[in-house]
Design a protein around this nucleic acid. Structure first.
Lengths: 232, 232
DNA sequence: TGTTTGCAGATTGTATTCAATGATTGTATC
DNA sequence: GATACAATCATTGAATACAATCTGCAAACA
């Protein structure tokens, strides 16, 4: 959908990567000027990339206030995770109706990569874990489903960045292995259950503490430290 | 997601509407210059709108070749309809778990509108039929689900524009009424089945004749009008 | 003391400009 | 008559320039 031959694509791609890898945290301002300088392009080009990221929900573009990394609320977070369950359920159901051989082969190859960097290159591990889900979606052969999954996995990364305190609240590699096993046996029931509990686990680790839901609301945070009122 | 206070929003909205209502047919070129003149804005502004439409899949933006109304292939059409089934199934399932009262009320009000313009204002009828599905999705309370349904309904309009020859291959109002009835009774099974066959019907009417799959190929069209060769 | 108003400075919105690319047409050659 | 090449034209890509808006701070005021 987005052709890479333009000058704005590298900007888009880098920003996207940085947001997903949580180098750019939610709420961080993204001024057109400084980004343009970094990449050696004009504001026009940067803006193009920002518009696309806004459309994908990774960036919040407010009129006359510029762009910043999106800050999903806790409600949006639940909404997105629920949608993700729906999409990935569909992925599993479709895969179970297909020839498992090439699917298993591709998945095992990916799993090997995941294991290779496990505990070594943390950033890469996170990325590979996300890409496992994208690969699953791509293997269905449905472009649009793969697109949606890609988008929603990115947004889940953003949610993790916002709400998860343990930085390793990511996908477990063993859970991926289990899922592959279920798919290999053609056990649709188990595969579905596997995926469901896997995603539920990720969500739980991410959204465990609702009291920390609005870390950016200064007033709310300070209210906990406020001394008792002098006059009622 | 897209703030309406900018100058590019009206351009985006008009183009979108025109594409959905099939005034702008698939494949039609969308030159930045002429569009800008029409709306009294510069190319910069038009481009902004086009980028968004490209991200939504309604417009095809090719580097150095400009924009044109997207021309979904027959494969993409099937892909999109399958995705739509998935999304709207989710909508129904969620609605069945909710309090039916306000839902039924809203749906009936919308149905009344549909009936009001049935057979009178054809363009409006088409739009209302699409908006029925969007309303269903919005009633789930899930922003992201509503977004996806909105997007996919638009793309289905595009598919109809491309492949359906009977211009009235749209949603049937009675089918909407049936669905409401099933929802009112809280009959999840029947509601799901209703929606499924409803969408399947739309798809069938749209994609009935695969031989007409590439109507925009000038050579192919003209070949039918070409006189017999003078010399074999 | 707290609130409001007005003025820089910074940042974005949009238009304009110049460069680059692609499509089309015309011409020459085989 | 067909093909290859060259020139022209139209259109887009990207940068710059100007206008509009917002932010923060400071001074004036209640």
């Amino acid at each position: 959908m987005y052709k890479s031959s333009t000058r704005s694509f590298p900007v888009y791609d880098s920003l996207r990567q940085a947001i997903i890898e949580q180098a750019l945290k939610p709420g961080v301002k993204l001024p057109e000027d400084s980004i343009g300088e970094t990449f050696g392009v004009s504001r026009t080009t940067v803006r193009n990339a920002l518009v696309r990221l806004d459309a994908e929900g990774l960036v919040d573009l407010q009129p006359n206030r510029g762009a910043s990394v999106a800050e999903p609320t806790i409600e949006e977070a639940y909404d997105i995770f629920e949608m993700r369950q729906c999409l990935e359920r569909e992925v599993i159901q479709r895969l179970c109706k297909m020839d498992p051989k090439p699917i298993i082969k591709a998945l095992k190859a990916h799993l090997k990569e995941e294991e290779k960097y496990l505990g070594k290159d943390h950033t890469r591990s996170i990325r590979l874990a996300g890409e496992f889900h994208i690969l699953l979606a791509e293997l269905t052969g449905s472009k649009i489903l793969a697109n949606y999954v890609n988008e929603i996995v990115s947004r889940c990364s953003l949610i993790l960045a916002r709400f998860a305190q343990v930085h390793s609240a990511e996908c477990g590699v063993e859970e991926h292995a289990e899922l592959i096993a279920a798919l290999a046996e053609g056990d649709a029931e188990r595969a579905s259950a596997c995926m469901h509990s896997h995603l539920h686990g990720v969500q739980d680790r991410a959204l465990l503490n609702p009291e920390d839901a609005e870390p950016d609301n200064v007033a709310q945070i300070l209210s906990r430290y406020r001394p008792a009122k002098t006059k009622p």
